[in-house]
Design a protein around this nucleic acid. Structure first.
Lengths: 200, 200
DNA sequence: CAAGATAGTGTCCGAACGACCACCCGTCAA
DNA sequence: TTGACGGGTGGTCGTTCGGACACTATCTTG
């Protein structure tokens, strides 16, 4: 065994992540033994300490349990087909790691996810069931996709300028352009989109 | 006390969310007592059962612990300017940072993010610059969007069945259907999509 | 008013928990 | 060659955990 067998830990970390995905919690030492095939809880405890040093888990503020860090959720970003499965080490080395939340949400306190209803933006690749990432209190410019409040309901449209006035353009020829009578009330600007395929 | 005192439960839920934000875990019954001022663990247990019925928490698959549901992270309606027909928006900020990652990724150890190049899937609302969430080692069925390896490069196409053989169909009439000569090598199945607007 | 449901108390128990210690055995550098 | 280090076994200990049961007080409804 090499002095630091991080390859094996990468496999352990993968199993830990899978467990977390289903149970949303770092398992107990005993359950880690089951998951990894350890016979002793000490091995599990030492594994967690190693992962803590590597920055994947940390203690809760009370210090009585473990919780994941941001790094725990990072996913590899594949640029080119990585053949011949280079076994990923815990130290990273290969492909960039990536956190979707980081990528999409820049101002957490002002960001909301809103489910899309209807197909008025279908030609822009936004379909019913998608989630749009909406940043509130952000100046909107023509060409932005915005969530506006029209007749006390939320509408997702493209903000456009028409003869010096803001209008809401659908991206589907079957829908009419909305020309607001008075002030146009904008809830927020769309900064991202999330879609899930084959979901349950 | 009313038959269902949901007002008080809303306060409890708020405290539970605060705790979760710091410890990333549903507290134990005893700790719930401390948090809420209960004197008996039974009260804590019943509270969790109420919240389960309301859809905020659920049991882990093993049934030995509690975990939050997606609803747990919903921003309280009072936080958004209350309007008729407010959209059900998920997540505020103060809940959990890693919500989108969890929404998209179910098997972390087998999931990779792949950037999209080209517009061969434009009619399916997948554009250049998007990121697709790819789950590897997963049986692909006709109709799935898959990332295949053709000539040592990634290709994103729809898997289709044509006269008993698998073919790769683009979702853009400008591109031809790919009929692989020999074995079709599938890298993984697309289970999600991420897009960012107005990126820097 | 009475019946029933609801929020919470108090107490018990067995199982699971994490902390700790002594020990084993490869690997690797001095 | 030898000693330090790192991953792992095996077992003990006191604590905490969740589940169960009996009971109280309050509010709602018929």
């Amino acid at each position: 065994m090499p002095a630091t067998d991080r390859r094996r830990d990468a496999e352990y970390l993968a199993r830990l992540r899978d467990y977390y995905a289903s149970a949303h919690r770092i398992p107990s030492l005993q359950r880690i033994c089951d998951l990894m095939g350890f016979a002793s809880k000490t091995a599990a405890k030492k594994l967690l300490e190693r992962l803590e040093r590597a920055g994947f888990v940390e203690k809760t503020p009370e210090g009585d349990a473990w919780m994941p860090t941001e790094r725990f959720f990072e996913r590899p970003l594949a640029a080119t087909p990585v053949r011949a499965g280079a076994p990923d080490s815990i130290e990273g080395a290969q492909g960039d790691l990536f956190l979707v939340d980081r990528y999409l949400i820049r101002q957490p306190s002002r960001t909301v996810l809103v489910p899309v209803k209807g197909d008025s933006m279908a030609d822009a690749g936004i379909y019913e069931g998608d989630l749009v990432v909406v940043e509130r209190d952000r100046p909107a410019r023509a060409g932005d996709f915005v969530v506006a409040i029209v007749d006390d309901a939320f509408t997702l449209k493209e903000l456009a300028l028409e003869e010096g006035r803001f209008v809401l353009k659908p991206r589907n020829p079957a829908y009419p352009v909305i020309r607001p009578r008075g002030e146009l009330e904008i809830f927020g600007v769309v900064t991202g989109l999330v879609r899930r395929y084959g979901a349950t």
